[in-house]
């Protein structure tokens, strides 16, 4: 079996993000970049399947700038078998999904595992779009994955509003990982050294013959308004009044 796992290069969630003066994006210089945390969970899940089933190849894939190699290397150090980098300049979610379709056609995986969303723009779209384009079953926001005895289908628990949903479906399929699916391992030193010898293929997005024209344009980016200081009120009445007339939340 082959599992394709997506890995996106995103700013470290701990870094303080500033919008650039032109309001077209964020200031990228000096930022620390990491593997999207939900993608780490996706990698971990693929590795656990490999450890449980043996004959599984885990391929990590990233679409983006050449520096995304660093994040792919972390995936390899965690234990993935090989990596593919598709070089593309700021593709939007639709373009990423279309690129992934090409890779799926080429690699023929049984399972594609993605993080449920990337923590940079929180779009939460690629997995769904990919499933649609391929016409494959999908299970998003999963917190548990179990293979059926014949390994031809899986059962997933999805985290949905107000509860859990259990669904079963045939493979091949698309899965997007939620926070509680597992706790990802840390890259080990021996793992890092082994990763050096693992193959990393580079593909130019333009060579894949897909339409990369962005469908989404960022018109303006602005930081959320700064929080203003709180204020003490004298009585419940005054509080209710303030909530109604000033905050307008009641």
């Amino acid at each position: 079996m082959k599992i394709l796992v997506t890995v996106k290069r995103v700013p470290d969630p701990e870094s303080s993000i500033k919008v650039n003066p032109e309001g077209t994006g964020i200031v990228e210089s000096g930022l620390k970049w990491v593997v999207n945390p939900f993608d780490e969970i996706a990698i971990e899940e693929a590795l656990r399947i490999k450890e449980a089933q043996g004959d599984v190849e885990v391929v990590v894939v990233s679409v983006g700038v050449s520096e995304s190699q660093e994040q792919l290397r972390t995936g390899l150090a965690m234990g993935a078998d090989r990596a593919i980098l598709v070089k593309a300049d700021r593709p939007d979610t639709a373009a990423v999904a279309k690129i992934l379709v090409k890779l799926v056609e080429k690699e023929q995986p049984t399972l594609v595992i993605l993080g449920k969303q990337a923590i940079d723009d929180d779009s939460n779209e690629v997995g769904q779009m990919l499933a649609h384009l391929l016409g494959w079953p999908q299970a998003t926001f999963i917190s548990k994955l179990t293979f059926a005895g014949d390994k031809a289908s899986v059962e997933c628990i999805r985290e949905v509003d107000g509860g859990m949903e259990t669904i079963a479906f045939a493979l091949p399929a698309i899965i997007t990982a939620d926070l509680r699916l597992n706790e990802p391992r840390y890259a080990s030193l021996p793992g890092i050294m082994k990763a050096r010898k693992k193959p990393m293929e580079e593909i130019d997005a333009a060579s894949l013959g897909v339409d990369l024209t962005p469908r989404v344009r960022i018109k303006k980016m602005a930081p959320p308004p700064a929080r203003t200081a709180g204020r003490k009120v004298e009585s419940v009445d005054e509080l209710i009044n303030a909530l109604q007339t000033e905050a307008k939340v009641m």
Binding site: V34, Y186, L189, I192, M193, R196
Partner: peptide
């Protein structure tokens, strides 16, 4: 056996472990 890339990955891994 090392290269700048591997040093980077080592630093990255150490920092992640240290912080988390």
């Amino acid at each position: 056996d090392y290269s700048k890339d591997t040093f980077d990955t080592v630093l990255e891994a150490a920092y992640k472990l240290a912080r988390e």
